[in-house]
Nucleic acid binder design. Structure first.
Length: 306
DNA sequence: CTCGATCCCTGGACGC
DNA sequence: TGCGTCCAGGGATCGA
């Protein structure tokens, strides 16, 4: 499932293989994952791809503006004045193919390129998203997202995490807090930092927050080096699977031994997502059990009143 | 503000 | 072999 390292892998692949190419034509098949299919059909043909960058879990295919005006570079180098935003969802992929290669059943968008190849967007589940955005609309859209995990400094990270009472797992997954972290890397960084996923962000000490930030960045960098995690079907632009799944310490390891203490890794649902953690290294927060007790007590008293 | 529930969607695992 | 069922999950949305 594409999270930051997987999207980075794809973006780098595309930067190397399609940046500078011109889109000759666009063929749309299913379009229900697009903000505005007509805009894509209207704006993309004839446009040159300036560069491809990752922004959170999005890929930004920045387009050379028609006027030839200079690009506006925002924080982290992202944000040209016109771009195609592509989110890979759970099963999306964007990669160049030879035109004679048979179309996948789930290839929904085909960009014919000026070198004879085709840039194809393939996504069986269509949880992805694609949108053409420009100018103020693009800038506004990008502002909805939080800090870049690889660049965020200690004070901002601490402010974003410790300033909320939501559970840390929910905060890590919230794209308005940090852009790009998903379920795998949230669990891996929490395991590394020894923090329970259900702990309130506000209850993290400054030290814990900083340990978490460092763990997250180290894990993301390592995962990018290994071209991401391939759980079911993620492959890069050349069809090669990532290798970071071989280094997972928590994610997907329910019932297996914790590499640090030997206890059995558990799986619980936090923020609606499977969360894998070590019950010994990542101690349950104060209040986690008493809260349950309180709920039961409340239910009992409620029932007895009836 | 924060929560859980629900929906979107398909393929893969599993049981029979 | 084939069928039904369940589950995976990022994100939007809604009601509590």
């Amino acid at each position: 499932m594409p999270e930051l390292p997987e999207v980075e892998t794809v973006a780098r692949g595309l930067q190397g293989s399609v940046a500078g190419r011109r889109i000759l034509s666009v063929t749309l098949r299913k379009t229900d994952f697009m903000d505005d299919p007509a805009a894509i059909e209207r704006e993309l043909p004839g446009r040159q791809i300036a560069r491809v960058e990752r922004f959170g879990k999005f890929m930004l295919l920045q387009l050379v503006s028609k006027s030839g005006a200079g690009e506006i570079i925002a924080e982290g180098g992202a944000a040209a004045s016109e771009a195609l935003l592509v989110h890979l969802g759970m099963t999306g992929n964007l990669a160049p193919h030879f035109a004679e290669q048979p179309l996948d059943k789930h290839s929904h968008v085909i960009f014919a390129l000026d070198d004879g190849r085709e840039l194809r967007y393939t996504d069986p589940r269509r949880f992805g998203r694609m949108a053409y955005l420009a100018g103020e609309t693009l800038a506004t859209e990008l502002l909805r997202f939080g800090a870049e995990p690889l660049l965020v400094m200690a004070p901002e990270f601490a402010r974003r995490i410790r300033g909320s009472r939501a559970r840390i797992k929910a905060l890590l997954l919230d794209q308005r807090v940090l852009r790009g972290v998903g379920n795998i890397y949230a669990d891996e960084s929490l395991w590394s930092a020894g923090i329970h996923p259900a702990k309130s962000g506000a209850r993290l000490t400054a030290q814990e927050a900083e340990t978490l930030r460092k763990a997250l960045q180290k894990i993301l960098r390592k995962a990018i080096q290994m071209r991401g995690s391939s759980i079911s079907d993620f492959v890069d632009t050349q069809g090669v699977a990532g290798e970071y799944q071989q280094h997972h310490k928590a994610y997907g390891r329910e019932g297996q031994k914790c590499f640090r203490c030997g206890a059995k890794i558990r799986r619980i649902i936090v923020a609606g997502r499977s969360s894998y953690f070590c019950p010994v290294c990542q101690r349950a927060p104060r209040g986690a059990t008493s809260r349950k007790r309180n709920v039961k007590r409340a239910r009992r008293s409620h029932a007895s009143k009836k």
